[in-house]
Computed example of a mutant assay.
Amino acid sequence: MYDQIFEQMKAQVCKKLDNLDKHLTYHCKEHTFDVLEQSIRIAKAEGVTNAHQLHLLKVAALYHDSGFLETYADHETHSCMIFLSEANRYGFSDEDKEQIIQLIMATKIPQAPDNLMERIICDADLDYLGRDDFYKIGDTLRQEFLHYSIVKSDDEWEALQLKFLLNHHYHTQASQQLREPVKQRHLHQLQ
C-alpha cells in the first residue's frame, strides 16, 4: 500500500524538481534522491522497521528541499507548504502531516532534531560530509554558494566549510560509526 502511494508521489515530485534553477548545483534532484536513499539506509541501521514511520520519513526526504522551487532563504517552510498542498490527495492524516512537517523542518541549519526520525533525516541530509565523494559534492555547493552570493570567494567558501565541519556532528549512532571517522579525515585535510 505505502509503496504504490510513495511511487506516485515520487514521480510527481521528480517532475517538479526538473524545474529547479540550473544554478542549484547542490540542492538538485540528485541531492533529494541521495537524502531519500540515505534516510532508508540509516533507518534500517537504526533498527526502524515500522512501515508507516518509514513511509513518513521517505515522504519527508522527498519533499525536504522542494521549497527551492520557490525560494532560497527559508526553503524548508516552502517545502512544507508544497507538501501540504498535495498531501490530501494521498490520504495523510493530520497527525501524519504534522510529523512530515517536523521532519522537513528538522533539516534546517543549524539542525536540532528532537527524536530518532528527525535525527535520521538530519544525518541523511548531510551524509556526504563523511563520504569519499565529499570534495566532489562540496564543490557543487561551492558553485551554488558563489552563484547566489552566499560566499564571495573561494577563500570565504573554504573558511565557511571548515567552520561548518568543526561545528557539525552526526545525530545517529549509525552515522557516528560509519561517517564520523571519514568526516574527521576531511576536517584534518582542510585544516
Rank of each mutant, 00 (worst) to 15 (best):
V59S: 03
H31N: 00
H23F: 13
D18E: 15
T25Q: 12
D18P: 04
E37H: 15
H31M: 01
I42Y: 04
Q38G: 04
C28H: 14
R41K: 11
A60G: 09
N50D: 15
G47W: 05
T32F: 02
T25S: 12
I40K: 06
A60D: 01
N19K: 07
L20V: 04
D21F: 14
Q38N: 11
E37N: 14
E37T: 12
C28E: 13
T49M: 03
T49V: 08
V48E: 07
E30L: 02
L24V: 06
H23R: 10
N19Y: 10
D34S: 11
D34K: 10
E37W: 11
L56D: 04
L56A: 03
H31D: 03
S39M: 10
L17P: 11
L56I: 03
D21C: 13
T32V: 10
Y26T: 13
E46Y: 10
V48P: 01
I42V: 10
R41E: 11
L54A: 05
A45W: 11
A60K: 03
D18W: 15
K58F: 06
I40R: 04
K22A: 09
R41H: 05
V59E: 05
H55E: 14
F33G: 08
L56V: 09
L24T: 03
D18F: 14
T25W: 09
Q53C: 06
H31V: 02
T25C: 13
L24A: 10
Q38C: 08
H23S: 10
R41V: 07
D18I: 11
E37A: 12
L20P: 05
H27Q: 06
A60Y: 05
L57C: 01
I40T: 06
T49I: 07
Q53V: 07
F33N: 05
L17M: 10
H31P: 00
D18M: 13
E30G: 04
H52G: 07
